[in-house]
């Protein structure tokens, strides 16, 4: 499992691997928002939690379609599926590698981008915690979507349509937690919900993804 994780991280930082791509995309989306809605600080502070979460979510989606597609194209998915390591473990490792190369940098960069959107000071801690809790769910749900669309040409488009609705609960509770913190209210309940969604996804979806890949490889 560590071998797969190590390989995927190695591939991510090599040429064409897309490490930092999600981060750059997140940065650009967040920088574009003030241009779109105007520079009023109250407006920006009001929309900052939602904008940051939607930005992070879209950035996460960006590299998902390559999660299994490259392995499928060069034949290594066949070989991984016949290796002694269970396919479920391969998927855990690949989702973890995806999280380390996208979700973790997004979480760490979010406070800096929060400044750009005039996010109120009380909300930074909750922003980081909610993203840290929520982004693993984005990676695992995405891995499930990528597994469903693995053999398809132009599967990336279908993947977005399949996965974005599944991201909704994470987005609702994640952005709500940040919004409440920004308004000076307690954010524990929505944070718990985000953590709950993540744990649930981690427990169930890799198995569903493995089943989907097995069917797609037939």
């Amino acid at each position: 499992m560590i071998a797969v994780l190590k390989r995927d991280l190695q591939l991510a930082i090599r040429a064409g691997g897309g490490f930092g791509l999600a981060l750059a995309f997140f940065l650009i989306v967040v920088v574009l928002i003030p241009f779109g809605v105007g520079p009023e600080r109250e407006v920006l502070a009001r929309i900052a939690p939602g904008a940051l979460w939607v930005g992070a979510l879209l950035a996460c989606l960006l590299s998902l379609d390559r999660l299994f597609a490259t392995d499928f194209e060069d034949g290594s998915l066949d070989l991984l599926a016949t290796a002694p390591l269970p396919l479920e473990a391969v998927i855990y490792a690949k989702a973890l590698a995806h999280w380390i190369s996208t979700g973790l940098p997004l979480t760490l960069a979010a406070p800096v981008l929060g400044i750009l959107l005039n996010l109120p000071g009380e909300a930074y801690m909750v922003l980081v915690v909610s993203l840290a809790f929520g982004t693993p769910a984005l990676s695992v749900i995405g891995a499930f979507g990528a597994a469903l669309t693995v053999g398809l040409k132009r599967g990336g488009l279908l993947l977005s349509i399949l996965v974005l609705p599944l991201y909704m609960p994470t987005l609702i509770f994640g952005a709500d937690a940040v919004g409440r913190a920004a308004a000076g209210q307690g954010a524990t309940t929505p944070l718990m919900f985000v953590a709950l969604i993540t744990l649930g996804s981690l427990a169930v979806l890799p198995f569903a993804a493995a089943a989907a890949i097995r069917v797609n490889l037939r």
Binding site: K6, A15, G75
Partner: peptide, 23 residues
Amino acid sequence: AHADGLKGTLTVAENLAFWASLF
């Protein structure tokens, strides 16, 4: 199979070392 399952951005030794540790 027909496809070799090699990663173009990894070296020959890295490719083989990955499969070695997996097995």
